[in-house]
Design a binder for these strands. Structure first.
Lengths: 207, 207
DNA sequence: ATCGATACAATACGATCGTACTGCCAACGG
DNA sequence: CCGTTGGCAGTACGATCGTATTGTATCGAT
């Protein structure tokens, strides 16, 4: 064996650079040459690690998914009980607008491709379904109000969090405001749970 | 004056073709040549009506905004009272996933560009702010519950509708389910208003 | 009838795209 | 010690990009 290099790490490193370009210029800006420049390597090296542009984009999509997943899992790690887990996960999603704008933006760029591209679509669907099941289970385990259907509420919470994340991303509202909105909604649907007022981030709504 | 052609109409026609490409392939797929082919005109004609690619993209963004605005205004036209107006507007937004996937997808494609491009960002911000004010006013006029702040609730409703529209677009849930979720939320925050059960669209939740 | 302005088509051109290919260097196995 | 193998850079090439330019037909005004 020749010079040993962590193949997977190198691939991810380059895919991360591609992801940054996705976020900045959309999928249009992802060019082998640009990626090479962004990653600080030669154009030939990008070819060495990826079979082609499609392979590179696929890897970038997976990196994006992994990045977002990682943030949520981190946020949830030290949670105390299902209601707290649910709250932390949702706040992590709305926080993506400022903590991880690159994966979020890249996610939007890929979303347009998800329609028509079976692989990307499956990536979205599989992830979305898994998250939905998880959220629904957390809702059910958090002492929901009588008129709350966990499945529908999971869609509502997920939609709310995603929409708020976009709002935060566009600067329409502050993270704190978005977090307060999520907390307010959680208090409404989970009267039995103590969805704490000790917010980990700023939470002074302004307008 | 020479051969009279509706200049604005021709421009919009071509911009619509560009918008379809945005939705299908993302901003990456918007090429002068491709746009010409999609619109069924010559490459030179696209140049004749647009100063360059930036001009074309700008026009497409405005067409997208106009399309979405049109759908919402149509949905709101025959509304009876503020609560009904609010409901119809929100249902129109979640319905975009099936009634207007092209502007919605194109909107996502442009969103990635909104960060960094002042003009597109202003388009988003201006539109978002106006809609937010409108929604907040409708909430305030619809007899909200005591714990409802119209401004925050407007963000919540808008975020919820946008997030659900994405879910519908990705096929994660049906329009009817999304509509039911919106209705459920509206009933919670507007106890004084009759947010009708006589839905204009299908509204049989399934899961 | 002619002239100017406009709609529209077609071509030209430099830059850049994705991909293929070639070559050099370093590290292990024999 | 040498050959093979993989990391890596550089170049070549056809296709396509955006734009500039040119040419032609058609209408309205003079």
């Amino acid at each position: 064996m020749p010079k040993q290099v962590d193949h997977a790490a190198r691939r991810e490193e380059i895919a991360q650079a591609a992801l940054r370009l996705c976020a900045r210029d959309g999928l249009a800006g992802v060019t082998i040459g640009q990626v090479a420049q962004e990653a600080g390597v030669s154009k030939g090296l990008v070819q060495h690690y990826f079979a082609g542009k499609a392979d590179l984009l696929r890897a970038s999509a997976h990196v994006m998914r992994g990045e977002i997943e990682r943030r949520i899992l981190e946020a949830v790690r030290d949670a105390r009980g299902p209601a707290d887990t649910l709250r932390r996960a949702l706040l992590a999603v709305v926080g993506l607008g400022v903590t991880a704008p690159i994966p979020l933006l890249a996610g939007h760029a890929f979303l347009a491709r998800a329609v028509g591209d079976p692989e990307i679509r499956d990536l979205y669907r599989a992830g979305g379904d898994a998250v939905h099941r998880e959220i629904a289970a957390l809702v059910a385990a958090s002492g929901p109000a009588a008129d709350v259907d966990p499945g529908a509420e999971a869609h509502a919470l997920l939609g709310l969090a995603r929409g708020l994340a976009d709002g935060v991303l566009l600067g329409e509202l502050a993270v704190g405001d978005a977090a307060a909105i999520v907390d307010h909604h959680l208090r409404r649907i989970l009267p039995g749970a103590a969805t704490g007022s000790d917010s980990p981030s700023s939470s002074r709504p302004s307008g």
